[in-house]
Design a protein around this nucleic acid. Sequence first.
DNA 1: AATTCGTGGCC
DNA 2: TGGCCAAGAAT
Length: 353
Amino acid sequence: MPSEETVEVIQRELLDWYREHRRDLPWRKDKDPYRIWVSEIMLQQTRVDTVIPYYERFLNQFPTLNDLANATDDQVIKAWEGLGYYSRARNLHSAVKEVAANYGGKVPDELKTISKLKGIGLYTAGAILSIAYDKKAPAVDGNVMRVFSRLFAIPDDIARQSTRKKMELIAEHLIPAHAPGDFNQALMELGAMICTPQSPHCLFCPVQTVCHAFHEGLQDELPRKKKAKPPVQVNVLFAWFLQGDKVLIEKRPDTGLLAGMWALPTVEQQAGESPLRTMEKFCDKKTIPATNYIVKSQLEHIFSHLHWKIVLVQAEVTDSTFPLPEGWEWSELDDLHTKAFANVYRKALKNLL
DNA sequence: AATTCGTGGCC
DNA sequence: TGGCCAAGAAT
């Protein structure tokens, strides 16, 4: 642990720097716990510039916690369309309804309580408690781990959970009781603007004088991080089942990949199997009366852990009165824009419409 | 502990 | 251009 003297230098320099240089971000206009909460969920694994327009629209559509609690699932997921990690939206909606129903609409201000809400882990709990309620709670995200890794020359792999635990102990030790919210945000802001992953701007760093990595020239070697595995390749088929100006769409299950989003009927295809044969078996299994199969186009989409090689196959449904598979619906072509589709399906639709 | 969850921007 | 990364949580 750093000495008391070092702790004081870090606190003072970081707070002074933050109060001078902090970005004017839309979630920094007030300390409404609900607004802070929404911003923290959106910012998980997502860049500030990407979040800003979503945040503005979302808060415009759901200005208060009760507005969100009273919204439908479809409204919420549509507001999240394109932002990714869609379970965040479902968990947020669920948790907000829980707060409205069981906490009188007031976001809990205790770690033990707020941590029970869906989608709120230790980081998000600490961020909300410190920023909205001025509570001394650690909020260790990727920025903070990178900053600590360099500041104290910690060689541990920041991809490991045990490393985050270590960092949280350090954060507890560093956070000043008089400004926990600003200090936590200062650490993150430093990571975002100065102590960046590549080529950190050490010459402008407010804590350069006490930075272990800088003095040893290790800023480009730290933090250490295990490389992610490459995405697994999977061949999938998107079905474009037309009848007149209607098309079949499928609501994905509320867990797993693209949870709760609308999709084109999707099936994995075996290696070496032709798209038309896959389509034939798919229709047979789902007892879909369709004919005139045509391969329309092919595309690829890379998720974090999956690499989809996609074939788009069109077919004409000959009898629209057949029993629909669970979760399937007919949609007017003109209504597709009102449904929430993940980007991979938006890309496909662009090729088809 | 290691995986699973999206997407877009950057060099 | 493709690998890397971004205010993580759930399982």
